[in-house]
Structure formats: structure tokens, C-alpha cells
Design a protein around this nucleic acid. Structure first.
Lengths: 343, 343
DNA sequence: CCGGGTCATGTGAACGGTCACATCTGCATG
DNA sequence: CATGCAGATGTGACCGTTCACATGACCCGG
């Protein structure tokens, strides 16, 4: 008859156990845990050894109870499910933020605010102080949750410039306008002159900026800006498909198209293929994001790379700074043209 | 000079405040909060009113400190980043679990275990009791993290039957074998006889089962099982593409192919298209999962639907039951053939 | 040799809940 | 009428930290 211990969770060692083991007081152990100021090398050593021996891990609940911090942050996505399902950009961002936070030993709580009920529940949860701050991702228009959080004084950093929230909320974004300029310049350099564009949602700064970059470069190059060559999308694959069809109908002589997201560009490629257009021979296609969708597309997309790793890292950095009491900040990061097969 | 209050987080009301407001003791408030047994209707009423008036929300840290529970669970993904980025199945699962947990007011902590260091950190975090249980997603082979967690007695429920963990760990899975049988029967019913297969990873139960279903049905139908028609993949898009090329080279007369995941099927479609094969006229393609990838593909994929919403709901249900002290359980859910354009 | 600083350490009081227990009331039962 | 039992409520202890404060050791300058 063997006695199995696996399956029973034994109660973990406390700071008292460590203190006793190391022959010091709780206070000293606590000091070692948090920075180790005002503690002798001898004690430091003894405590660390005791921690290793006992396998001690701090009880975050007890800590949070007294500090008032939760040492965790929320990742809030206020997008409809379908968007989350189809756009791998979210995964990249989510992964990047999770890892950046992990370096600080801060867990990420995933919050998906699809329905109105969920929004209320989540808002309540956040304002109750269960997280120290929020990483906000919402590419689309006016966001009541964000506004409420801002008013409640919750540290908040958005991915992409948010709309209607004044300057009180931090954000990290790629340089949309500049990226768009690079892409359109690239298309011009290939000799294309009838360049269409499928924009992002025009009620968002990102969408507007990318379109502005497009117009600017054309104007600089002395190429007429033809309104028939401009259609707007919402970053979804389907809207790219629809946009391309519209463009083909309105401007059959189009020889290139700048698409404001890779996902939409996938749709554009599908529509062009169906219409019998060859990419890039007949029509060159440029995307935006350099999301996993860009390389998954065939032909692989020439696109504007958003530096996702830096974006997520900066979002976390800015958020933690703000939690630490610093003022909100805006960070704009440079983009990079990545040339692949579609141009 | 206006005085702005927004931006300053005021300290939230405690259970004491509510008790005073309602004219009862802390104990009574606590009882109302947890089930309301042994509380008079009068008190009940008064407490609820007080809660509403004060905007009280329980302090989870204080509660956790004494109960020993964290009232949160981890969602652990032990997959390489690229897999997470390309496969929308994860998003569906993640979303489903988050929502199912939200109904119980339990937050989900996202844990991505890519590197060895991350694995160690995460294991430590979990075994320290910072989460009550873990939802495990890892489609691939032997998982040391899972083994360690199981040994530590952490409630654990896997998505898909895990390998090498004995019967001690719960899992929820679709009926892989039956789903595969349905698909192959469907292909046979279309008159196809030279049916290729791109399997999942054969060191996983899921991959093995789907292949077994394929072989079974062919045998039943008296169709020869030709080893040249069998190639194995790893659920990635690229492996689907490579698999299809291999199949075309080895068996040019192939008239259908059963692909063990939608993502691989996307790759298969791309390869077939490049080879000039028409789908479904020349070759019918059947996928598995009914992930968002299935409808995004063109032509849209006929596939075997895994009931994702039920899977995530069951995972959460089983996990919570196990946290509550019940024994591990295995749940197998039925699949459904969804016919679209590719067959 | 003493007063005043810095460093190192210990100690009690929080933090905001829950839980076990004690108390009190009312009512039915023998 | 005493007894018991269930319902309803209050009370103190406790969970494991951190923090403010007190204490002690040591060194340095006057």
C-alpha cells in the first residue's frame, strides 16, 4: 500500500517560515524581497538561501491587500468577436504585451468586451481596482468604456491614437502617415500612376492618417487625386474584397492599389484573382501592418511593417510608468517598407 | 480655477462601510455576499440597498487571503508563437473560455509558454497557487509543464486528449475519429475513390484518431488504403502546402483529400491552385475544425465542425468542478459535417 | 567622551475580508 | 414550564504581507 502525495496541494511556506529559517525577522525578509535596501550582505545572503531552501513564493494577495496595488494589468479588447477571430494582429499584440509584462512578473488579464453587458461587468471590475491599469485595443470608433475608465482615473494606454479622449490618455502608435507615404512612393517608383486606395475606417485617426499620406505623396508627385480611386473599408477581409470590386468597376485602368491593412489586402487579392487580374503584373498591391496575414497571402504582400514588438513593449512601459505616477504620454514609432511579391 | 476630481482614484468602500450603512454587522454583509443563507429578508434588503448606495465591490485580495483561493484561472498555451499567430482556433477557444469564466466572475490570466524560461516562470507562478486551475492548450507532443502541474496537484483540464498524462488529467475533446469518418464518407458519397489525407501530428491522440477514422471508413467501403495517399503534417498552413505537393507527386490520380485541419487545408488549396488543379472539380478538399480559416479560404471549406462554444464551456465547467473537489473527467463532444464549396 | 547621524534590524499595527463560535430570540415539543 | 433546536446576528481571531516606528549598533566630529 503506497501512499501517494501527488494530488494534495500542501500549504505553501510563508514569510514567517523564511524568516525563521534564515534566523531573521519578517521585516528583513520583506526588505530583501523588495529591493534589498538597508539590509546587510550577510542577512541578504541568509534570506536568499532560506528562500531557495523553502521554495518560498510571495503571496500576492496578502501583498496586494496592504499595498493597494494588484500587480496585474488588463488587456481590454473592445472589438466584435469576428474581428478578433480573423485578424492575427491581435495575437501579435497580445503575445507581445504578455511577454513584456512577464518580464516584470505582472500577469495579464484578458478582457473581451463584446456585448453591452460584458462592457459593464468589465468596467466595474476595472474601476473596482482589480487591475492597476489597462492596455486598450480598439481600432474602431468612439469607445464609452475607455471614456469611463479615463474618468475613473485608471491608468490607460491605447494601441493607436484613440478618438475623442483628449490628451489625457496615453497611446502608442506607428507613424501611419509616414508609412502610407512610403508605400505610395514605392508604388510610384514602380511606374504606377493609377493608384487606388482602400482606406481604413475614416472615423479613426489611423484610417485618416493613412489616407492623408496617400494623398500627400500623389500631390507631391503631381499625380491627380482621383476620388473614384478611393474607397473605404473597416480593416476586415470582407471589406477589402468589396473595396477591390468597387475600384475595378469604377476605374478599370487602375494599375496599383494601396490597402490600409494586410487583412483587407488579402480580400483585395482574392477579388483581383477572381477578376482575372494578375498581381503584381497587372496590378500591384501594397498592404499595411506586416501582420502574419502578409506572409500568409499569396502572393506574399509588400507591406508597411508596424514594429509590433516595440509597440507592445512601449505600451507596457508607458502603462507601468503611468501606474507609477508619471503623466500620460504619446509614443509614435517609425514604420518600415517590406518588399515582397505583390509589387 | 476649477478643481478636477477625475484622475484621482478615491479609496473604495469596504465591507465595514456597507455594514454601517445598512445598520448590521460585517458578518451579515458577508453572508449576504455569499449565498445569503441564514439572513433575514429584512437584513438582506438593507444590505443590498447599502451595497448599491455605496457602490461596494468586494476586495478580492482580502477574500483570497483568507479563503486560500484566488478565484482566477490560467489559460496556458504551450505552443510556439508562430502557431498562435497563424491559427485562429486559439482565438476562438480563448474567447469562449474567457466568456464562460466571466459568467462566474472569474478572470482569465493569459500564459504563453514559448521559451524554456517562460515555462519555468509560469510553472512557478501556477504552483505557487496564484491561480486555482489551468486551462491547457497544447496540440503537440509531450508537455513537461503539464506533467509538473499534474504532480503538484493543480486542477487541470486540457483541450484535446493529452498524451502521457495518464487518466489523472481532465480533458475535453471533439470526437476526432467520428468526425474523420463523416468526412471520408462524405467524400466517398461524391464518388471519389482516390482520397488522400494530410494527417495531424501523429504523436498526438487527435492526429492519430483522425487518421484512424479515415482508414476505417475506407476499409468498410472496400477501398484500398494506399500508403502513398497518406502524408503527415503538423497542423500548420505550411505543412498543408508541403503535404499537398507530396501527394500530387506520389499520386497524380488523387481526386479528393481529407486534411486534418482547416489551416493545413488552406495550404492544400494554395498548392492545388498552383498546380492548376480545380477545387472541387478536379479534387475535392475536406478540412477539419470549422475554424474561421474555413470560411476565409476560397473556395470556402467543407469541414468537420468542432463545437467550439461547447468545448470551451465544458472545459470551464470541468475545471471549476475539479477546483471544487470533484474528480477529473473526460468529455467527448460530437462533431458535425459542414458542407461548403470545396467538395 | 558625548551627541547626532546612518545603517541594520525587530515589532506591532494595519489591510479587508471570512470563518468559527457565542449569543439571543422565538417556537414547538414533551 | 423546562428543553431543545433552528434561525438570525454579532464578535474576535486569523490569513500573509508591508509599513511606520522604535531600537540598537556603530562611526565620526567637536
Amino acid at each position: 500500500m503506497t501512499m501517494s502525495n501527488s494530488g494534495g496541494r500542501r500549504k505553501p511556506p510563508t514569510i514567517h517560515d523564511v524568516a525563521r529559517e534564515a534566523g531573521v525577522s519578517r521585516g528583513t525578509v520583506s526588505r530583501v524581497l523588495n529591493g534589498g535596501h538597508y539590509v546587510s550582505p550577510t542577512a541578504q545572503e541568509a534570506v536568499n538561501a532560506a528562500i531557495r531552501r523553502t521554495g518560498y513564493v510571495v503571496n500576492r494577495h496578502a501583498r496586494s491587500l496592504i499595498t493597494g496595488r494588484s500587480d496585474s494589468v488588463g488587456f481590454l479588447l473592445t472589438e466584435p468577436q469576428e474581428r478578433f477571430f480573423e485578424d492575427p494582429n491581435f495575437n501579435v499584440l497580445l503575445s507581445g504585451c504578455t511577454q513584456a509584462l512577464a518580464a516584470h512578473d505582472i500577469p495579464l488579464l484578458l478582457m473581451l468586451a463584446g456585448t453591452k453587458d460584458e462592457r459593464r461587468r468589465i468596467t466595474r471590475y476595472i474601476t473596482a481596482g482589480h487591475v492597476d491599469g489597462v492596455l486598450l485595443v480598439s481600432s474602431h470608433s468612439g469607445d464609452p468604456v475607455a471614456e469611463e475608465l479615463r474618468e475613473a482615473g485608471v491608468p490607460l494606454v491605447a494601441c493607436g491614437k484613440p478618438i475623442g479622449l483628449g490628451s489625457k490618455v496615453s497611446y502608442v502608435a506607428a507613424d501611419d502617415r509616414d508609412g502610407a507615404r512610403d508605400m505610395v512612393r514605392h508604388l510610384l517608383s514602380l511606374g504606377r500612376r493609377r493608384i487606388g486606395v482602400v482606406t481604413g475606417p475614416l472615423d479613426t485617426p489611423g484610417g485618416v492618417e493613412r489616407l492623408a499620406g496617400y494623398k500627400e505623396v500623389l500631390a507631391e508627385a503631381g499625380v491627380e487625386v482621383d476620388e473614384r480611386l478611393i474607397v473605404s473599408g473597416d480593416y476586415s477581409r470582407a471589406s477589402g474584397e468589396a473595396g477591390a470590386e468597387q475600384l475595378l468597376a469604377r476605374a478599370p485602368d487602375m494599375d496599383a492599389v494601396f490597402v490600409a491593412s494586410d487583412l483587407m489586402a488579402q480580400g483585395v487579392l482574392a477579388a483581383l484573382h477572381r477578376a482575372g487580374k494578375r498581381v503584381p503584373d497587372d496590378i500591384a498591391v501594397g498592404g499595411f501592418d506586416d501582420s502574419p496575414a502578409a506572409t500568409a497571402a499569396s502572393p506574399a504582400l509588400t507591406t508597411i511593417r508596424q514594429p509590433w514588438d516595440r509597440i507592445s513593449a512601449e505600451m507596457v512601459r508607458v502603462l507601468l510608468a503611468q501606474i507609477g505616477g508619471e503623466d500620460p504620454a504619446a509614443v509614435i514609432l517609425p514604420t518600415l517598407l517590406v518588399r515582397r511579391e505583390s509589387t
